[in-house]
């Protein structure tokens, strides 16, 4: 008889024992140092709880009526901004995404386009908006420029990844017919990335609308301005109404776009 019992243990997620312990150590020191370096004013939070309660209660009941004109105007302005910015952004994104696809662009163009994408992605919409408002004045135009530019980073990055994934032989076949570069893109590449293109456009439309709600806070026009004004005037019922309107529009947009995307496939 064999005295040894056969023991089976679940295979751990990370095989290397040292690495496993090391990771746990790193994570716990990280958490500890965060805890030690973060100044949290518990006093203020305790005070804040009743204040927060009042604050939240101030949101009820949401008041759609008093400022209904401003809410409507803000919503429509956001919509115009979103539509124009999405279209402009996508139009600029098309050449950039062709340039940022390794299998299409020469090295020089590739790095240039990647640079444009990284730059556009680095800055959050709000930061861009601050600068464009500074350069072009308050109002929806600055907001539109902001949204267009941040559309490039998002759209061109994802589309260029899809272009890099195309079926090579289909594209090669078009090239072998003696097509020009543009014809090659039109016949060999475009049909293959079209579903993704449409999906991304709808997705970005949705994102741009949501972002339009914040860039208004720094002066970029749209529903965000309405929200900001409501906060400034301590009209929290109106602010609540604005938030509810934003949520419901986002829900509608999301529902229709996911429905549309299913139709296209």
């Amino acid at each position: 008889m064999n005295d040894k019992k056969v023991i089976w243990k679940r295979k751990p997620l990370i095989k290397n024992r040292l690495l496993r312990i090391g990771l746990i150590l790193i994570i716990s020191t990280y958490l500890l140092s965060v805890f030690l370096t973060t100044e949290i004013d518990w006093q203020r939070i305790l005070e804040g709880i009743p204040r927060g309660k009042n604050f939240i209660f101030a949101f009820f009941p949401p008041d759609f009526i008093t400022r209904s004109d401003e809410i409507l105007a803000g919503i429509f302005e956001s919509l115009w901004m979103t539509i124009v910015a999405t279209i402009v952004g996508i139009l600029i994104s098309i050449p950039v995404s062709l340039g940022a696809a390794k299998n299409i662009a020469p090295k020089f163009v590739y790095f240039l386009s990647r640079g444009v994408i990284t730059l556009s992605r680095s800055f959050q919409e709000v930061i861009l908006a601050i600068f464009f408002v500074k350069l072009m004045g308050f109002g929806p135009f600055a907001g539109m420029v902001t949204l267009s530019l941040s559309t490039i980073g998002f759209f061109a990055k994802l589309l260029s990844e899809d272009i890099e994934d195309i079926n090579k032989s289909q594209a090669e076949a078009i090239k072998s017919t003696g097509s020009s570069w543009f014809q090659w893109v039109n016949y060999g590449v475009q049909p293959q990335v079209m579903p993704r293109f449409i999906g991304l456009s709808l997705y970005r439309l949705d994102i741009n609308f949501r972002e339009s709600a914040v860039i208004g806070i720094v002066g970029g026009g749209g529903i965000g301005s309405t929200l900001n004004t409501a906060f400034d005037r301590y009209e929290f019922e109106t602010a609540a109404a604005v938030l509810i309107v934003i949520i419901s529009i986002v829900m509608i947009v999301e529902y229709t776009s996911s429905h549309l995307r299913k139709l296209i496939k």
């Binding site: 973060t38 100044e39 949290i40 004013d41 203020r44 939070i45 005070e47 804040g48 709880i49 204040r51 927060g52 604050f55 939240i56 709000v126 949501r210 972002e211 709600a213 914040v214 806070i217 929200l227 906060f231 938030l243 934003i246 949520i247 986002v250 829900m251």
Partner: peptide, 19 residues
Amino acid sequence: SINSVIWALLLVAVVGPGV
């Protein structure tokens, strides 16, 4: 649907400014 900045705006009022 609510952007982090708007969430932050609300939360600063509740728990006070800070991390």
